[in-house]
Design a protein around this nucleic acid. Sequence first.
RNA 1: GCCUUCGUAGCCUAGCCCGGUGGGGCGUUACCUUGGUAAGGUAAUGGUCGCGGGUCCAAAUCCCGCCGAAGGCUCCA
Length: 636
Amino acid sequence: MRILQLHSDFITYKPVEKELSQAEEVEKTEVHIEEVVVLFTSVEEGDTVEVSQKAINDVRAFLGRLKVNKILIYPFAHLSSNLSKPSEAFSVIKEMENYAKQKNIETYRAPFGWNKQFTISIKGHPLAEQARTYTAQALKSVTQTENASVCKDKKDEETVSDALKAEDNLKSFWHILQVDGLLVPVEEFKFKSNSNLQKFVNYEIKKTRAVTVMPPHVPLMKRLEIADYEHGSDPGNVRWYPKGRMIKSLLEQYITTRVQAYGGMEVETPLMYDFNHPSLASYLNRFPARQYVLKSEDKELFLRFAACFGQFLMAHDAQISYKHLPLKLFELTRYSFRREKSGEVVGLKRLRAFTMPDCHAFCADYEQAKQEFITRFDLCIDVLDNIGLAKDDYEIAMRFTKDFYAEHKEFIASLATKFGKPILAEVWNERFFYFALKWDLNFVDNQGKAAALSTDQIDVENAKRYGITYVDEKGEKQFPLILHCSPSGAIERDIYALLEKAYFEQMAGKAPMLPMWLSPTQVRLIPISDKFLDNVEKIAKQITDKCIRVDIDDSASTLQKKIREAEQEWIPYIIVVGEKEIESGTLSVRIREFKGKQEALTVEQLVSKVSEKIVGKPYKPLPLPMHLSKRPQFYG
RNA sequence: GCCUUCGUAGCCUAGCCCGGUGGGGCGUUACCUUGGUAAGGUAAUGGUCGCGGGUCCAAAUCCCGCCGAAGGCUCCA
């Protein structure tokens, strides 16, 4: 017997039509029940009355903790592929109902054998969602919280006879993977110089945090007019001001170029998918809770939470030969939607709508997958380095089963050696997720909280699930291994990391700034008075012609104030232009990197100085009018 | 989602405990100032005190509900 137990604010259901000849007679009226624990129940072959009683006893114990005494038994065939005969199932369900009533539980039951329409609102507390499996052989239950997911769906449970064993398998064993490839239990590792890794480990394992302050990137994203909350939307859907849009666009462009150079074929796939599509229905229909759901005519759709769906459906229909492998599909999703719990949505760190590069590589076998994995590992680290996040700024976690480790020990060790810093390793006794190996790169912020950026995984399940095949040398169809990689993680999260990093630097006494290629204004020209505006415009043109973003502060303010404001905008080069400069042809450039130290440079020298720093990066023109007097103020 | 705290003009904030004309700063606009490297001066402008309900002669202030944010918890495809 499989039960999905959901503590609900309410459920509304309506019998639509009979699906079985044995279906009971009921009226097709809508039923609405509030504050109820709904038990979606599949009766499996061999289930007995005792099994249903055991299930009710367990549920009863839970009701006490939830402080509810109302249940709805909802016959639901879709939890199992090993259903018992309908007649037997119906009698077990009725027994379950009777037994629950005997135990003084307020019991409702949805009709058996009907196709029913339902709407359910599930509470968000940790005990609200529970999945249980019972068998006649071992009247023990396995309980676990479930997640709605295709991309990281937990493996469909096998019938588990020993609860303790299952618990053990779920347990994570934490180690540190040293640079020399040795796996050391985390308790025995001496952190010493690796204080950032220590922070990350604390966050991952102990969930403890050092500081309790407001995330500094939130006021920064507003003050720098990058992004802001949009109260006219849903939490976690933010607005991007011109400067922010430019930064984001540059990052998108850069990452796309890098993935294309690596061999990723850029595609575009739909934002919304049909709940009832055969490849998706079985995984999603059960758990509509965490997706954005929308209705269109008689269709129920959900918004994608990754590019997996579109690319997998595309790969399913494609004719793929072993000669094409590894085959790489890429999409930069704007957006992916995840309806994160409201308490978890923060600034740019965790959003409900985010932009994510997602590259899947379909590989013939482990040999090919491993080779590809290494290429992508290098790609991810290099991409982040170019974005402005170096190895010192993050820590890597690697997650695998002990069997996988035994088979691929050298491979895992080689990744650690390549990285050159100790890695946190999470080891499981048994594979529970769809991947055999996963690494994720984590930025640890000013609150001591970690957020995953880049990631790559070896997926050993979804090819089968989606019916993706290639034809091998012998002409036989084979399921490929699928690597899932986001070379940078969500773009918004990259910006979060850059802002948090800048704040770290400010705390360390440096002038906070963005990488040169992402600075909305790279050079600010300040004419000392209106008399020099014409000259300044000529200089601005010379600089703009070299693809450098330069603007002019022609506002009616004092010189000192203009400098102060330019500094607060984190502008890397600030130049005051007056008679001296015009006469000498040399600019006195205030350099942020050196805390405002001034240096005398010609226009040409300045241009080459900036160009050097942005070589190889995409360019976009100023996102705002060149003259500050023409700019609105978006925030503050 | 839960617990705690918070929500006052475009932004920051005083007032709330102890009910009785909402005060300051930044910004914006105008004028004066045309300057030499992080806040020049004067004035004007700007408020459904988050939204809805209740108590009261009277509510920014007390009570209830909702929305939003932060911190903690939990979770994190």
